[in-house]
Simulated scan of single mutants.
Amino acid sequence: MRTARIGGPVSAARRFSAGVLVALSVALGSAATTPAAQAADLELLSCVGSGANTYQPGVTAQPRVVTIDSSADYDSCVSSGSPTITSGGYAIVANGLVSCLGGGVSITVTITWNTGETTTVAAVGLVVLRPANEVVVVYQGTVTAGRFTGAAVVMTAALINATPAQCFTAEGVTGTSGPANITITRLT
C-alpha cells in the first residue's frame, strides 16, 4: 500500500497561513493606534478552513485561460463584532490566466454564513507556486454587498498540487486542495 507524504506540504501551508495571519494582526494593530482608528471601532472577522479548486483545461507550465471551480469551507470563525458568525463557505466558477508557475484571477464570491447572512466580495488574486508544490493564492478586495459592506477582505489559500509532474503534460493539473483563510476588517 502506498501512502502519501503530506506532512511537509501541509506544514508549509499552515506556516504560510499562520504568517499571513500574523502579518495582518501586526498591520491591524498598527492601524488601531493611529488617531483616525481611535475615533472608530475596528470590527474583525477571521476564519480558517479548507479550499479546493478544479481546473478546465488543466493548468500547465504555459499560461492559458482556465475555468476554475473553486470552493471554500470556513469551519472556524471568530469575530470581534459578530460573535454569532462561526462558519461559512462559498462555491464559484471563475476564469483566469494561469500556469503552474503563477497567474492572476478576478473573482466575485458570495459567502453564506451559518447565520444565513451573506457577504459578497469582489477581489483580485495573485497565484504563485511555492516550494513543496503549494499553489498559493492571495486575494485582496472589498465587500460590495451584504454583511460587512465596505469592509476590506484578504483571502488566502495554500492549495497542494499532488501531481506536479502533470504540469508538463497536455492534460495539466486538474485539481488542488488545502488550507484556506479569510480576514474581513471594517471600521464601524
Rank of each mutant, 00 (worst) to 15 (best):
M1Q: 13
R2D: 10
R2E: 03
T3P: 12
I6F: 03
I6Y: 10
G8V: 09
G8A: 06
G8D: 12
S11Y: 00
S11A: 11
A13Y: 00
A13H: 00
R14L: 00
R14G: 00
R14P: 00
S17L: 01
S17A: 08
A18M: 13
V20C: 02
L21F: 13
A23P: 12
L24F: 04
V26W: 10
A27K: 13
G29F: 01
G29M: 15
G29I: 14
A31C: 06
T34S: 08
A37R: 12
Q38I: 09
Q38P: 05
A39V: 12
A40Q: 04
L42M: 14
E43P: 01
L44A: 15
L45D: 14
L45Q: 11
S46M: 09
V48H: 14
S50G: 10
N53P: 03
N53C: 06
P57H: 05
P57A: 09
V59G: 01
V59F: 12
T60D: 01
Q62F: 08
P63N: 09
I68V: 05
D69Q: 15
S71D: 03
S71M: 09
A72I: 05
S76A: 13
V78T: 06
S79T: 05
S80A: 14
S80E: 13
G81V: 15
S82K: 07
P83C: 04
T84I: 12
T84P: 12
T86F: 05
T86G: 08
T86H: 02
S87Q: 13
G88T: 01
G88Y: 12
G89D: 05
Y90Q: 11
A91L: 06
I92Q: 13
A94F: 02
G96V: 03
G96N: 13
G96P: 06
V98K: 00
L101P: 02
L101S: 06
L101W: 02
G102W: 11
V105H: 02
I107V: 14
T108W: 02
T108R: 15
I111T: 04
I111R: 05
T112R: 07
N114V: 15
G116N: 08
T118D: 08
T120F: 09
T120C: 15
A122V: 04
A123K: 07
V124N: 13
V124H: 15
G125H: 14
G125S: 04
L126P: 01
L126N: 08
V128F: 02
L129M: 10
L129P: 12
R130M: 10
R130A: 02
R130S: 11
P131L: 14
P131N: 06
N133S: 04
V136R: 07
V136S: 01
V137H: 00
V138C: 13
Q140T: 03
G141I: 07
V143Q: 15
V143E: 03
G146L: 10
G146W: 15
F148Y: 11
F148P: 01
T149W: 10
T149C: 14
G150R: 05
G150E: 11
A151W: 04
V153A: 05
V154K: 06
V154S: 09
M155K: 09
T156A: 11
L159M: 15
A165K: 12
A165G: 09
Q166W: 08
Q166A: 08
F168S: 14
F168H: 06
A170S: 04
G172H: 04
G172W: 01
V173R: 02
T174Y: 04
G175Q: 04
G175R: 12
T176P: 04
P179S: 05
A180R: 01
N181M: 03
T183H: 13
